[in-house]
Design a protein around this nucleic acid. Structure first.
Lengths: 290, 290
DNA sequence: ATCCGTCCTGCCAAATTCTCCGACACATCT
DNA sequence: AGATGTGTCGGAGAATTTGGCAGGACGGAT
């Protein structure tokens, strides 16, 4: 079974990873943890994540996903998620195989595939499903290149392309297809998302975004939510909070400055929002460099 | 262990229940199911529910609770929840012991206990915890009365009062105490809830409610949410939807009429909201009497 | 101990976002 | 044809955000 093979390969790969595999197989990455974690908030990039061992839970907006061994998670676009590992130990660490997705590859493939694909109607930005040999099999072939740098250099990109292709056509690829389809609602929302990400420190003008996307405000909100799982402002706030947290942990002088840095004018309010998001006050995350 | 004793007693009680136990032990009720259910929406009354066997999950507003054997759930006031039984079979049915709570008893006790109680700060309307002998022990004594009708008539109310007393002082009783404390925010919200329940078919005037509760709109929303887990309008909508569903299942002539009955003017919109809430269109729930 | 600055929590009003809700058009089903 | 379901929109109003201000907690410094 290909899943077993992948587990085996990933152990091998993670043994080498510190050295140079990053250069040989740039798209694959093994993530490993030996203990359970509390909820952590991060921003995901487009990625497919296959759980090889352990368990993980995640929340984005209102939806909740639970992943076990053999499950895979397809993230179609940048998304602030909150996740934790719920099953991991020194003997059986949590281990996941992560493939970064390259949107330009997807786009070029989509142009070839074109409209020949049926539209999933309930596509979500966070699609989970059991691993499918259609794309795990090329993943195996990709990982097998780790010991043959020259092969990897030539064949690697080809196999990568195949993986993208399989994902694009797979049942969980619904959101990918929507995002790529030119001028679909989803793709226009994707543009809005990029705009928010580019300037999340500035105040948000939802009206402008809606107009730029060519929708009424109500439609814009609806589509935005269906793509991201949250509202525009929430999305921005999540970005701000995650940024604030890294600032604090990196040892920014004070809480107020951190709040100001990410776009809050009122430290009071920043503190309140922060506590709501992370469950404890910003001061607790401030690096104890002093 | 008292939990084992309760299990035993509840099996006995449920064997008799059809006959007359309802009159002998009016406050206790055994709920039993031999199979797993899909999510169902109902309105809970104030109640303490102790899981004797099986598992249950529930959602109210944004919080999510998972209950296993030996867990108890304290519902402090009327609340529209969505729940399902996730672990039940013919051999090991889901079984729960349910005690209705009597607010007037609680109130009279609270007057005696008065301020001698420490306030829990994170009180929620749906408090879950492991069963505590402090109140399971009197529950045992209550159930043991089932074979002695005369004893039950005299001692029953006393023991009930004791159960209420223990719950009121227990760690999970935080919300109960808040609700009872005269003129606390929680108690004023409770009044608003009653007003919504009494006239959920009419359009909602949140401003009036806030004013009646003597708070600013923002404070009102905040407190309302902390007590109920949702916003006033959501709360009303949940009531409407649950009512609509029973109407449909009872065989109301048409979908439009059902929508109109619960306060919607536009059948179009009613249909959409209904699908969002229950996952399938109102027509599917319309009794197939035709 | 007393002061002082920083941070946290409660409350509010104004502003903005977001959702509701009815309207209409159109596809579907029976 | 009639009833129902889905997409879109505009306007109303519900809900949240935001910043301000007051009061309290905490932790150094003096």
């Amino acid at each position: 079974m290909t899943l077993e093979r992948l587990k085996h390969l990933s152990v091998e790969l993670s043994a080498q990873e510190t050295v140079l595999s990053g250069r040989i197989l740039p798209a694959a990455h093994i993530f490993q943890r030996e203990d359970v974690t509390a909820f952590e908030a991060v921003v995901y990039n487009p990625v497919i994540c296959l759980i090889l061992q352990g368990r993980k839970e995640m929340t984005v907006g209102d939806q909740f996903v639970s992943l076990a061994e053999g499950d895979a998670l397809l993230v179609s676009h940048d998304l602030p998620v909150t996740s934790r590992i719920t099953d991991a130990s020194a003997e059986a660490p949590y281990r996941a195989l992560i493939f970064s997705l390259d949107v330009s590859i997807l786009r070029s493939l989509y142009e070839q595939v074109g409209e020949a694909v049926t539209e999933a109607h309930d596509a979500t930005s966070l699609a989970a499903s059991a691993a499918d040999p259609a794309w795990t099999e090329p993943m195996v072939r990709y990982l097998e290149l780790m010991d043959a740098p020259l092969d990897a250099q030539v064949l690697g990109p080809m196999i990568l392309k195949e993986i993208h292709y399989r994902l694009l056509l797979s049942p969980i690829g619904g959101m990918l297809r929507k995002l790529l389809s030119v001028d679909s609602h989803a793709s226009r929302i994707a543009k809005s998302i990029q705009r928010i990400r580019a300037s999340f420190r500035e105040p948000l003008a939802v009206g402008d975004l809606a107009q730029a996307a060519g929708m009424s405000q109500s439609s814009f909100h609806e589509h935005f939510k269906s793509v991201t799982g949250t509202t525009p402002l929430q999305y921005q706030k999540d970005l701000r909070m995650i940024e604030a947290r890294t600032l604090l942990e990196r040892g920014i002088p004070s809480v107020s400055v951190a709040g100001f840095e990410v776009g809050y004018e009122s430290p009071t309010h920043f503190s309140r929002d922060y506590s709501r998001k992370f469950g404890c006050s910003p001061k607790h995350h401030l690096a104890r460099a002093s």
